[in-house]
Write a protein that binds this DNA or RNA. Structure first.
Lengths: 165, 165
DNA sequence: TAACATTAGTTTCAATTGTAACCACTACCG
DNA sequence: CGGTAGTGGTTACAATTGAAACTAATGTTA
């Protein structure tokens, strides 16, 4: 019932696309598997979505950011940030205060409660990451780091100049 | 106005999470950048969503699959497949015929038109992939391949056994 | 300082996605 | 056979997401 053993019916020519070898596809499957597993772990425990957790993760390291600065840091778009912020406010995980110097700007921070949650999630997230990393050698970890960097730059370049249109 | 030069206000302790170094996060950003860029290229030209294109990519190589077999091949869920299939039928990119041996089962194939589109998209997708790969050395490409394989297996293991709960 | 452009953030509405319930059919078991 | 369990696939409905319009404040120019 699997397609692996359909042998003769396979119709791949030289110009065919082998989805299972196609990097963008593999990245997508890998990324979804990993993110969903982790999100399930903290989502269930603390009522957090992925975007909300990302906002907390950034605010945990960089206090006093505005929504626009979160956009920069997270590569999320401003609507997603706005929604994450309002759900975090509802949970009392963050606080928001006006910047007197620019009354459009809102300064965000983890609340007491938010920091407690943050400090419980961090080790949990790190546990998943360590578990992933444990399947690699030191050497491979270094390689992966530099490879991701390169791919990221390349993909970034596409976005900036309609290069591939 | 960037957060890079906020220097002294950074509050990272030893147990903090450095999102920008956190593998799951980096994978997610990379994967989204890459997939979105490519999807934009073929989506605009041929009115295809990512799931629909994936279905075509598989049918291009493996004719006569059922929806369930597509689920296996693509790691998409059956609702997504069902929707992709119905949109592809609407576009006349695929054909569907009943399996007389099991009347629940529907046999899917690229139509004439679908195959034409497929054959125009394949090189386009490959161009993006090659462009990505071109930023790596041969050695790095091999490394990446094997690293992804390992990470995939690990993440798969999470799903199968509630290992990390 | 009036007019216009820009920036911060939110709201709205439509499209996409995920979960669960559902029909139709086949397989198994007494 | 008749009943029940399992499979293939779709539908329905709720939650998520994205694009664009909008409000409010600041900055800029004449």
């Amino acid at each position: 019932m699997t397609t692996e053993n359909r042998g003769p019916q396979e119709a791949a020519g030289p110009d065919d696309l082998h989805l299972e070898k196609f990097l963008p596809y593999r990245l997508s499957v890998l990324s979804n598997r990993v993110s969903n597993a982790i999100a399930q772990a903290y989502g269930a425990r603390f009522d957090l979505t992925i975007p909300a957790w990302r906002v907390m993760a950034i605010l945990g390291r960089f206090p006093d950011l505005s929504a626009a600065e979160l956009v920069e840091q997270t590569a999320m778009d401003k609507v997603a940030i706005s929604r994450a912020v309002s759900s975090l406010l509802k949970n009392d995980y963050i606080t928001r205060s006006e910047d007197p110097a620019d009354r459009r700007r809102q300064v965000l921070n983890l609340s007491e409660l938010g920091r407690e949650v943050y400090e419980r999630i961090v080790p949990l997230a790190q546990r998943y990451e360590r578990d992933l990393m444990a399947s690699l050698t030191d050497e491979e970890r270094r390689q992966l780091d530099s490879i991701i960097e390169k791919l990221m730059d390349r993909a970034q370049a596409w976005a900036e100049s309609g290069l591939m249109d």
